[in-house]
């Protein structure tokens, strides 16, 4: 299907595959398997695949647990387009959304011993760009093949 990613990602229109899965963590594994297979077929290296798997897992977990609040009647929509040059993945839940900029820094001294709050940071570190829609219930993960594999956390979150 033809999709229009958020304009700040400057991706234009994309022909993306779509999967809709029930809102549980086991079902959330199905898109991951398909996307990882596409990454391998397109020749992504081990470090890139590690980072994309981690980012996707964090996005899916956030959607199931926080976005849809574990509600089994809700669904997760995943869209993806994997080419040799770039991986673009969107994960959307049916929740009210959130403000990602308000999530506290999990590496600060006062938060370092909190069990939660590291998922968004990891997505930002391993992806070239991370972008949310205006209400925050749709996250876009972009990994440029040319981007160095070593993660960096500076300036990766693009305002939605």
């Amino acid at each position: 299907m033809i999709v229009h990613p958020p304009p700040q990602l400057r991706l234009g229109s994309l022909d993306m595959a779509e999967l809709v899965v029930p809102n549980d963590l086991r079902s959330a594994k199905a898109p991951e398997s398909l996307i990882l297979g596409e990454l391998e077929r397109n020749g992504y290296d081990g470090d890139s695949i590690f980072g994309l798997k981690l980012a996707l897992e964090e996005a899916m977990t956030n959607a199931v647990k926080h976005g849809n609040r574990g509600d089994p009647t809700k669904h997760i929509t995943v869209r993806y387009r994997i080419t040799p040059d770039r991986a673009v993945i969107m994960v959307a839940d049916e929740g009210p959304g959130f403000a990602p900029e308000c999530v506290p820094d999990p590496t600060s001294d006062e938060n370092i011993e909190r069990p939660n709050g590291r998922g968004i940071m990891l997505m930002q570190c391993y992806m070239s760009r991370v972008c949310y829609n205006a209400c925050g219930n749709e996250v876009w993960l972009v990994k440029d093949r040319a981007d160095p594999s070593n993660p960096c956390c500076e300036g990766r979150l693009t305002a939605g």
Partner: peptide
């Protein structure tokens, strides 16, 4: 492989 949930644990 591990995720933020594992880190939290």
């Amino acid at each position: 492989h591990l995720s933020s949930a594992a880190l939290g644990m």
